[in-house]
């Protein structure tokens, strides 16, 4: 917890409970990202800042910190994402919100 006026996004996510599955619930077809997408809307829209380009320019997602809002899925007009909800006992669990 912090009383800083602004916190790093990782610190914010650190306040939430995530129950981690072994399997990712978001899978990226990186070939689609590489060949069809220039906008990379996912990098901007994700409220948890989970999308990143790796050293080789390949799109990655740190799905473990996903808030399950679905914004990336809706905004990915190239349909590069296979996006499911995590299985039953897993994923973010809000205690207030």
């Amino acid at each position: 917890m912090s009383d800083e006026s602004t916190m790093k996004i990782d610190a914010k996510l650190g306040l939430d409970v995530f129950k981690l599955d072994k399997e990712p619930h978001i899978v990226i077809d990186t070939e689609v990202c590489r060949t069809l997408c220039v906008d990379r809307a996912c990098l901007y829209v994700c409220p948890a800042s989970l999308y990143e380009l790796d050293d080789t320019g390949r799109m990655t997602v740190n799905w473990e910190g996903c808030l399950e809002c679905g914004t990336c899925m809706i905004c990915c007009d190239k349909r590069a994402l296979t996006w499911k909800y995590p299985r039953g006992p897993y994923g973010v669990q809000y205690r207030m919100s």
């Binding site: 917890m1 912090s2 009383d3 006026s5 602004t6 916190m7 914010k12 996510l13 306040l15 939430d16 409220p47 948890a48 808030l67 809002c69 679905g70 914004t71 809706i74 973010v92 809000y94 205690r95 207030m96 919100s97």
Partner: peptide, 25 residues
């Protein structure tokens, strides 16, 4: 973060402790 840092908003949240961060469509 920028909203929260505005001089108009800062006094509203001063001294508060962030307890959860959430998002939804």
């Amino acid at each position: 973060d920028r909203f929260k840092a505005l001089p108009q908003i800062r006094p509203l949240v001063a001294g508060g402790t962030v307890a959860e961060y959430s998002a939804h469509a």
